[in-house]
Amino acid sequence: MLKRNTGAKGHADIGAGALADQLAPVMTRCGQGDEGAFVRIYDELGSLVYGIILKVLRDPAQSEEVAQEVFTEVWRQAPRYEPGKGSVKGWIATIAHRRAVDRVRSEQSARNREDRDAVERHVDLTSAVEDLVGDELERQRVRVALQTLTEVQRKAVELAYYGGYTYREVAVLLDEPEGTVKTRIRDGLIRLRDEIGVSS
């Protein structure tokens, strides 16, 4: 069904950062059919999954649907997760983001895309904001790191990742040559990687 090969992303050796991933053994148990481990995974990463999907789609109802697809895929693909070859967080974020952009680039979503400003107003939230406090420090680091990018790098990265646009679309939106946008995204990611580190 999906054309993208997430396997390629998951199978290069990333080194010590991923090996230190505390969620890796949990994902391994998840792959052995441990439902408690699955609950732990989504307790830890559910807000990340839902958050990035909502950021891209901006529609709470569609975002819930896509998040359901993501967690179903995570459960089914869990036996294929290989510890030490990318963190659980990176692996699941990749699945979630890819599913979100697949949806946003579909015809139906494209029509809705002009009308996406309702996102900040969604109300079906039962978890308290305090639930997010544990990750607040890390999120703050990311926001600070984003501010270290040049304005053009930050815009290109944000439009591509948070906006779900292809880099060619970003080039049109920013009225820049495609090659320039490609380079800015790459340089921006390298800068972020070096600022934040890739360890999990």
Partner: peptide
């Protein structure tokens, strides 16, 4: 992808 995961976070 790890960096993108942090952008998601």
């Amino acid at each position: 992808c790890e960096t993108a995961g942090l952008l998601a976070l």
